[in-house]
Simulated assay, not measured.
Amino acid sequence: MHTALACIAALTLDALAGEPRRGHPLVAFGSLAAWLERRLNAGSDAGVATGALAAGLLLAPPVAAAVWAAATLPVLPLLVLDAVVLYLAVGLRSLGEHARAVALPLAAGDLAGARRGVAALVSRDAERLDEAGVAGAAVESVLENGADAVFASLFWYVLAGLPGVVLHRLVNTLDAMWGYHTPRFDRFGRVAARLDDALNWAPARLTALSYALAGRSGAALRCWRAQAAGWSSPNAGPVMAAGAGALGVALGGPAPYPGGWRQRPRLGEGAAPGAHTIAAAVALVRRAVVLWLVLILAGGVAWSLTTAAG
C-alpha cells in the first residue's frame, strides 16, 4: 500500500498546489546541467564519451541519494519523501493549465493569443499556424507530455521506487536540454537521448494502451498498429497515434518550424482538431490517470492481503 498511498498523495498535491512557481528542484538541476555543458561541450568537437561523462556526473549524486533514502529512512518519512518527489515529477495540473492557455483564446477567436499559448508548448513556428494547426500542436503536446511527465513518472515509481522516479525525471530533463540533432548536441547529447528512449519505451506503450482504454478503443488500437511506426520518435509514435485515434481526430501532417516546413505522417482519423479537442485531450489523460490509480491501488491491496496471508 506504500506505493499506492504515495501516488495518491502526489497527485492530490499536484491537483491542489500545482507546479511550484519558485524553487523547483528541476530548475536548479537544469541550471547545473547548462553550466556543466558549457564547460565540457566544445560543440561538434565534443564526443559521445564527454556527453556520457557529463550525464553521469549529473545523475549519479541524486540517484545515489535516492537509493540511500529508500534503504534507510523509516516507513513514514520515506512515504512523505516519496510523495513529495513524485509530486515534483508529475505535471498533470500544469498540463491542463498550459492546454487551457491555448484552448480558451482559440475558442474566443483570439488566434494571436492561442499562438502565444502554443509557443510555450512546442518548437514550431507558432506565428505560421492556423486555427487547426494551433489546436493540433496543443493536442500533440498534451498527449506526448502526458506520457513523459505523468505516466512515465508513475511507472518508474511503481517499478523502482524513489530511485526510479528520480532517474527517469532527471534523464528526461537532460534529453529536453541536450537531445537535439544539431552540431552542438548531436554527439554530446546522444547518451542522454538514448537513455531517455530506453526509460520511456515501456511507459510509452502502456500510455498508448491507457489512451485506448480511456477513449475510442478500436480506433486507437487500429491507429497505433498502422501509424506509429511511421513517426520519427519510437516512443511518441505509439502515444500520439493511439491518442489521436482515441479522440477521433486527425493529427500530424505538415507543420512550420523555424527552419522551414516539415512533412510529418498523419496520425489518427476523423475531423481536424479544434479548441474542444484540446479539452478532450486533457480529459483523456485524466481518465487514463484514474485508470492507473485504480490498478495501482488494486495491486497494493492484493499485495497487502497476500503478505498478511503469508
Rank of each mutant, 00 (worst) to 15 (best):
Y87A: 09
A83N: 07
L53R: 10
L53G: 03
A49S: 15
W68C: 13
P62F: 07
V63L: 12
L95Q: 06
P62D: 05
L88V: 07
A69P: 07
R100F: 00
A66L: 13
V63F: 11
L88C: 13
A55W: 02
L95G: 06
G96S: 11
L53Q: 05
L79F: 10
G91T: 08
L92R: 11
A65M: 14
A65G: 12
G96N: 06
A66F: 11
W68R: 12
W68H: 11
G56W: 05
A70S: 15
P74I: 03
L92A: 15
L76W: 14
V67A: 07
V84S: 05
G51R: 01
V75D: 10
A55D: 05
A52E: 06
L81S: 08
A66Y: 09
A83F: 01
A89F: 01
S94M: 12
P62S: 08
A70H: 09
A52V: 05
V67I: 15
L92E: 13
L58N: 07
Y87Q: 03
V85H: 03
L79A: 14
A89L: 03
L53C: 12
T50Q: 15
A54R: 00
A64T: 14
A54N: 00
E97Y: 04
L53V: 14
A69H: 08
A69N: 08
L81K: 03
A70N: 04
H98D: 09
A49D: 12
T72D: 07
L57E: 08
L59W: 08
A52H: 01
P62C: 10
R100V: 03
D82Y: 00
D82L: 02
L79R: 10
A64W: 13
L78F: 13
A65F: 11
G96P: 05
A65N: 09
A71W: 01
A89E: 04
R100N: 09
